[in-house]
Amino acid sequence: MIEVNIYNAAFLLFSMITLLSAIGVAVINSLMRSLFLLIISFIGVASLFVLLSADFIAIAQLLIYAGSISILLLFAVMLTPEVSINNQNSKYFLFAALTGILFTYIMFLFISIFDINQLTGLSLDKLNFSNTIDKIGTLLLGKYIIAFELASILLLFALIGAISIVRSNESDFNIVATKIKGKK
């Protein structure tokens, strides 16, 4: 039986917020409302990260997902007016729902056969560190330096790519479109 304490209550609250608002994103027909719920879901995930003692990641999640990607989504919605306001299901939604349920079921099976006794988190408590930021920084600029640099290059290219895609005029787009059609 699960013990009643602050930690468990917080976990229940935050996971409920996350999951219910994610379900709301799937169910609600107004795109703006589902966007609002999506932001709440992001914040819920960030709170779960706090419970997992990942303070830096929680803040990064808050900054990047709730603060930036949501703004990007808002801009996308505002740049594609009127037709984009609805959030209705397509004709494949039954198939999609089945896929989701099947996936969840498989994951249940995996979790249930998992030997959880090894992974108690107690050994991490023994490592006894209070600050994750400098450790993450050491890892990023030490062991994973190449991946870090590649990620920065990826971000730069994404930035330039996004700008060039949106700025390209109709003729450029036609070239791209014909190339895509040709591949088909």
């Binding site: 999951l19 994103v25 999609a96």
Partner: peptide, 16 residues
């Protein structure tokens, strides 16, 4: 996993 399933449903089953 539930969150992932919801995301999967949205990604597969939405028009927009």
């Amino acid at each position: 996993s539930i969150l992932f399933a919801i995301g999967l449903f949205i990604a597969l089953g939405k028009r927009n």
